[in-house]
Amino acid sequence: MAYITCKDLTLRYEALTVQEHLSFTVEKGDYLCIVGENGSGKSTLVKCLLGLKSADAGTLSLGDGLKRNEIGYLPQQSQIQRSFPASVEEVVRSGCLNSHGIHPFYTKADKARAAEQMARLNITALADRCYRELSGGQQQRVLLARALCATGKLLLLDEPLTGLDPLVASELYGILRHIHEDHGITVVMVTHDVENAVRYASSILHIGKDESFFGSVAAYRESPVGQRFLGERLQQEHCNDCEPRFPHIPIDTEGSVQA
């Protein structure tokens, strides 16, 4: 049985139905990217996957030994976290809370696990630093280490690249690949970055207002939805005929910017 099985899922945001008849599965070892326009129900789907919201219709079930609280979640960063006085160690350790039930304090095993994840993500040297003083990329690593404390099975990332510069973003993709390939952790990522999604993921779930797609990356490239979405993105970047976005900067036919 798959880790996550969704059948005929309907998603509503307040009174508005944003998705109907959504079906997909996440198998152990998958790397699934969820893409789609704004307002297509990506965030609502994440809430359903985490059990923060129940499905409005259809079924969503977990299997293959995955429990609800074993999903390592990397949320979008909130404004509150950015100003919060907490050390990296404190933040990472808080990922261990799901495993120790009513035990009031962190056990030795918890602390060891937090240390292990910090070492894995190369942030051990930051352990005593203040979370709010770190760079965006470092903060993302800290949150990733926390998520890994909470799971050994499945990571769910909600637009982890928002606000990161391209260099840091590609670093994060590298870390994710490492976690996925070398540690066998299943990755589910909601993203806007469709180019890198098709580069790194094994399968794609595209949720759109009119049409949706679920399948392998190769099939997505061939599908009408995928071609349109990928094509549109490429056109936006490499269009020679259309109006330049900054008309005062002349753009030559090779697409390089002349000063």
Partner: peptide, 22 residues
């Protein structure tokens, strides 16, 4: 004191805490 760790988790990041079953 008894709930210190959990109070930290809930204060720092409610959605993560909720997602991990707190």
């Amino acid at each position: 004191l008894l709930f210190y760790d959990k109070i930290f988790a809930v204060t720092f990041d409610e959605s993560f805490a909720r997602a991990t079953g707190l």
